[in-house]
Amino acid sequence: MRPLTEEESKTVFTKLANYIGKNLVHLIDRQDEPHCFRLQKDRVFYVSESSMRLAISVARPNLISLGTCFGKFTKSGKFKLHITALDYLAQYAKYKVWIKPNGEMPFLYGNHVLKAHLGRITEDTPEHQGVVVYSMNDTPLGFGVTARSTVDTRKLDPTAIIVFHQADVGEYLRDEETLF
């Protein structure tokens, strides 16, 4: 377990900022308890300072997880967000997409969001913007990246993809072995 280097922090923050924008400051500058990012076996954990200090005494091979796993670094140095980060993303999300009940299951099986399933979308969402996907009763289901800006979606046919799937809560079941 170690803190992120500046380069790594930059990669993580750029990725997070794609979803939560300036709200990223609230993750770092927290009122209740100081939290920090820690790297353990390529995985980035968002952890309170007290539990981080407890985890220091655990040997590296024995430490499986701590705090909240935000994602992992790929071998090529890119950062990939995991579904476990959804709680924080949903809390601070800047752009949101709500999907109709008939689109929930397809999304939870790992498919992209089609225009037919689109319930609501935040106004003026740009293209290739990270968005959090909610069900119509405001339950966060996952997150993805918009294929078109809000304005462009109006002209599309119902089968066109609106949001590219990135992670959904179905992964808790599907990727149970590798997720944590």
Binding site: F13, A17, L24, V25, I28, D29
Partner: peptide, 8 residues
């Protein structure tokens, strides 16, 4: 925290 804020 201050380092991270600087990066942001």
């Amino acid at each position: 925290k201050s380092q991270n804020l600087a990066i942001i």
